[in-house]
Nucleic acid binder design. Structure first.
Lengths: 344, 344
DNA sequence: ATCTCAATTGTGAACGCTAACAGCCCCCAG
DNA sequence: CTGGGGGCTGTTAGCGTTCACAATTGAGAT
């Protein structure tokens, strides 16, 4: 591949010459060093502007060993949740003066994650945030070069020694389940997410524990994937069972599939069956009927994770604490839940 | 903000010493220069592996003036479309040996876009892909440093002199509208997207032209935003009008809102009113009823745009052609469309 | 008038890599 | 036996920035 060589632009030396100072003074102006006479400063700034000077960050990175770039390891970033976290991180990073580079992984195999870390490390990122719902990722992260700061966002709670920002999935599941129990439902069925994803697992566990604490029967689960098709499959089985009056879904997309299955079976929501989702996607309020759901603030999650990363980067290296920030979920009440129908 | 200085790692010189060669030979191995004796090559590779050597790309960038990084200017990247394009671009970029950095803009003001370009340029990206639905972006792109290659993806068709990859929105709108006309509907109403977005505008124009060509009445439009709430608003007005039997929506989210409005008004879909969407989001097949929609292959759009960018970068600079790649849409038939009800 | 200290500016040397050129060795032709 | 050429390797000089230190200046203290 014959690549063209970009032409050389204006550099510090050029600015220095025009302003009648040394290159070092230009550097000082650029880095806001205090000891520069205001008058000199202005002259330099003027020269920079007239030459349209732009500092070469590669050279700067070479000597400072800091690139002002952060790496993000993403998975399934087309989904609303990950995409929102990405956005939250990027916004916060920009305000902190960082650019973010993204490395998505196809699957969550250890090798894939390691190669993503490697790619980011080669490009000299200062830190890595992994949008990393499976534990393979966090454990791979620990193999990262020791001079690289990492945090994980949105995965499970049991992550070993990588700082983590995450939602309290179990608590969210509890909120949803308890809400349905409080309405008078004898028990709550569960349309689960993929069992090997910690987030799905935690939601299932939160649901199970809540039922158990209430002395309710714990129905079996048949987890599949995160999408509406999976919800439709699970929902069909539940719709066929007249004992089912309340369903807690692992996310809103699954809930959409469940709603469709119930509709096809002729079971009215919420009159006959109540449904609760998880995520509060932007359009969940426009499902038929509008979905009661557990709200996750993905943007906040992203922002928090960046804050945690920066905090770690600026902390003296002997402080070996591992933080885990947990963001609480809230329940959004809409029209898809109601008391159970009277027994006939 | 007191930042720690990362410790220094192993460099080429270390590898060279261990392998008993000069650093230049190490460099040759790394760059796959042909004239290295296989035996030497192996020794060097072995040394690199045992020292866990990782090439410093900042230094490489400094001398080659190529960072192997691409910049992406994104807008509303939490939405399914942009997020998918981003993913498509990133996948393709990885295969081509590039890392992508992302700069999102809050709004599409010229100043915002320029500052994003500037941020990317400072970080020495080799090229920029703008996910850029509004013309302000492409025109701002032309102000970019001349040594920076830019392409825009997914915006309008009338972009001036920036290479573009885009969907044929008018054609998609035509497909949808014609499908409804062919079913026997006297005319087709339109729940529009924001009129100041070229994509929305093109869809509206495609719809309008198709109706005009068929000699059908062109109903008024009241465009708002891309979300379900907007669809709900527009849908309520249409649901109240018994003459409305077919609705073409500017995207699937709007369609979701329209479906809800129709449902609340007691108008059955598709028996009384047919609805067509645009985008084919992953779960559109699980709406009530499953949505007939125009499918956009966002991933393909992303891949194509990367290919176009690379092609431009590797082209001799005297070739001043501007390419416009147009990806055709397809119509996905589902359950939300049917012939109009018999007049009563 | 001399000294001291701080503020301001300049000088040279890295940072880790690639490009350009020079040198070595060995084989084959003259 | 000598000369030339190609394969392979080493040497040197940047790339554009920051860092460490030296140099210069001027104000206030002695």
């Amino acid at each position: 591949m014959p690549l063209q060589k970009a032409p050389r632009g204006t550099v510090m030396r050029d600015v220095a010459k025009l302003a009648g100072v040394s290159h070092q003074t230009v550097s000082r102006v650029l880095n806001e060093h205090p000891n520069v006479r205001p008058e000199t400063r202005l002259r330099v700034l003027e020269a920079m502007r007239s030459l349209n000077y732009r500092r070469n960050l590669a050279a700067r990175t070479l000597v400072t060993r800091r690139s002002n770039t952060l790496g993000i390891i993403g998975f399934e970033t087309t989904l609303f949740g990950p995409a929102s976290m990405l956005y939250g991180i990027e916004s916060a990073a920009r305000e902190a003066g960082y650019l973010v580079s993204i490395a998505t992984v196809r699957n969550l195999e250890r090798a894939d994650v390691l190669s993503a870390v490697d790619r980011l490390a080669q490009h000299a990122v200062d830190g890595i945030i992994a949008i990393a719902p499976k534990t393979a990722v966090t454990s791979a992260l620990m193999q990262a070069p020791t001079d690289l700061f990492c945090v994980a966002v949105g995965g499970a709670g049991d992550s070993e020694s990588v700082p983590t920002v995450r939602m309290d999935n179990a608590e969210g599941a509890c909120l949803a389940t308890q809400h349905l129990l409080d309405l008078g439902h004898a028990t709550v069925h569960h349309a689960a997410g993929p069992g090997d994803w910690p987030e799905a697992h935690e939601r299932t566990e939160g649901w199970r524990r809540t039922l158990y604490a209430a002395g309710a029967v714990v129905p079996p689960v048949h987890p599949q994937w995160w999408d509406a098709a999976s919800g439709y499959e699970q929902g069909r089985a539940m719709a066929a069972d007249p004992a089912v009056t309340a369903i807690f879904c692992a996310n809103d997309r699954i809930a959409l599939g469940v709603l469709r299955a119930l509709h096809e079976a002729g079971r009215k929501v919420p009159e006959e069956v109540s449904v609760v989702g998880f995520d509060d996607m932007p359009d969940s309020g426009f499902f038929l009927p509008p979905l009661t759901t557990v709200s996750q603030n993905f943007g906040e999650l992203g922002r928090r994770s960046l804050a945690l990363l920066l905090e770690h980067m600026n902390r003296p290296s002997d402080a070996e604490t591992v933080d885990h920030v947990i963001v609480p979920p809230t329940l959004v009440h809409r029209a898809s839940t109601a008391p159970p129908p009277p027994p006939r």
